[in-house]
């Protein structure tokens, strides 16, 4: 049985991120950050510390930075640099030292627009997506030089990923997946769509080992798996949750395991390792590309229920999953990977 620790925090959480440093004793980070949304009068980026060792005894908020507008995304560029996508200020950069956040600078992207998502590369490259469908790329050291990627429409960019060093993948509210190559400046995006389905794409994640395999969650509760080498349509699509799939993540070291959370208030652990074992002969690169036909062999566990209110975000490191929800609770699940 997986164990779960829940704490009510009086803020709706939109994004959550473990610290990059892992505590060897517990095999999980001791700290994490959360960003709130839709709160009056202000929202905040909070830094939390886990109390207790093997058993979590409590979560204590050791710092909170107040902001105007929603916190849409949080990303660690490095262990000591945190980026936050804020509704009002675009991108805020925080220096992390001694487990404290110190505001370094803000990067304004575009007036009247909201930075909805961002992703960074270790060398300091940052790519951001906005509500008006704009994609900006810049380096953290040279943030006044913005490169704009050419987008042929203005639907909301809900999530953004780097498929490899140069390929930017974005998920849009019109249900498309768009791919740009950063080296090819001014080029148009390559489009990937769903078959006869236009439900919004909320979230995407790339397979940690096979970066051309992208998993996405839709507003119809389905997950789609695209092989970026194949044109347009997804290789697999599985109907899953009853509501919007709001976040999705592959397990970094065990990519046959996938995690999703949804507006129906559930967190699912998808275990596709059975498909892999039974199809050895076909030498499938990853079970996910055929997960719709082999759906019955995927084991799905519901990790937590938040009583019908949306779970907006999750983040998995080793055996620990943390999730934030609209019922103002944070949940830490201990996940079991066989």
């Amino acid at each position: 049985m997986s164990t779960i620790f829940v704490k009510y925090v009086s803020k709706k959480t939109k994004c959550v991120q473990w610290f990059p440093t892992i505590d060897l004793a517990t095999d999980r980070p001791r700290y994490f950050v959360t960003g709130s949304w839709d709160n009056r009068p202000q929202n905040e980026i909070s830094l939390w510390q886990i109390e207790g060792e093997a058993e979590i005894e409590d979560l204590s908020k050791i710092q909170s930075v107040v902001t105007n507008g929603d916190i849409n995304n949080l990303q660690f560029l490095k262990a000591d640099l945190l980026l936050a996508a804020c509704s009002k200020k675009s991108v805020s950069v925080f220096q992390v030292s001694d487990n404290r956040l110190e505001h370094r600078n803000d990067i304004a992207l575009s007036k009247e627009d909201i930075c909805t998502s961002l992703i960074s590369r270790k060398d300091g490259l940052v790519v951001c997506g906005t509500e008006h469908g704009q994609i900006f790329a810049f380096t953290i050291e040279n943030s006044d030089k913005l490169q704009t990627l050419q987008n042929e429409d203005d639907c909301v960019i809900n999530d953004i990923q780097l498929a490899d060093q140069h390929q930017v993948v974005a998920a849009t509210s019109s249900g498309q997946l768009k791919l740009w190559d950063l080296r090819d400046k001014g080029s148009k995006a390559q489009l990937y769509v769903q078959e006869n389905d236009w439900s919004a794409l909320w979230c995407i994640d790339k397979h940690p080992a096979q970066q051309h395999v992208i998993a996405g969650g839709t507003s119809d509760g389905a997950i789609c798996i695209w092989d970026l080498r194949q044109p347009k349509l997804p290789s697999a699509k599985v109907e899953a949750h009853i509501g919007d799939v709001l976040d999705i993540q592959y397990h970094q070291s065990q990519p046959d395991h996938l995690f999703t959370c949804s507006s129906d208030g559930e967190i699912w652990h998808w275990d596709a390792s059975n498909i892999q074992n039974s199809q050895d002969s076909q030498a499938l690169s990853t079970p996910w590309l055929a997960c719709d036909t082999a759906k019955r062999r995927i084991e799905i566990t519901n990790l937590w229920q938040s009583y019908q209110l949306p779970i907006n975000c999750l983040n998995v490191v080793n055996n620990s999953l943390i999730a934030g929800s609209d019922n103002e609770a944070l949940a830490i699940c201990n996940i079991i990977i066989r």
């Binding site: 939109k14 949304w37 839709d38 929603d70 849409n72 509704s87 909201i114 909805t116 509500e131 909301v156 509210s173 919004a200 507003s219 509501g243 919007d244 507006s263 949306p310 609209d326």
Partner: peptide
């Protein structure tokens, strides 16, 4: 925000 609109819509 569009995000909130979608939440209300849901």
């Amino acid at each position: 925000s569009e995000y909130k609109a979608r939440k209300v819509l849901r």
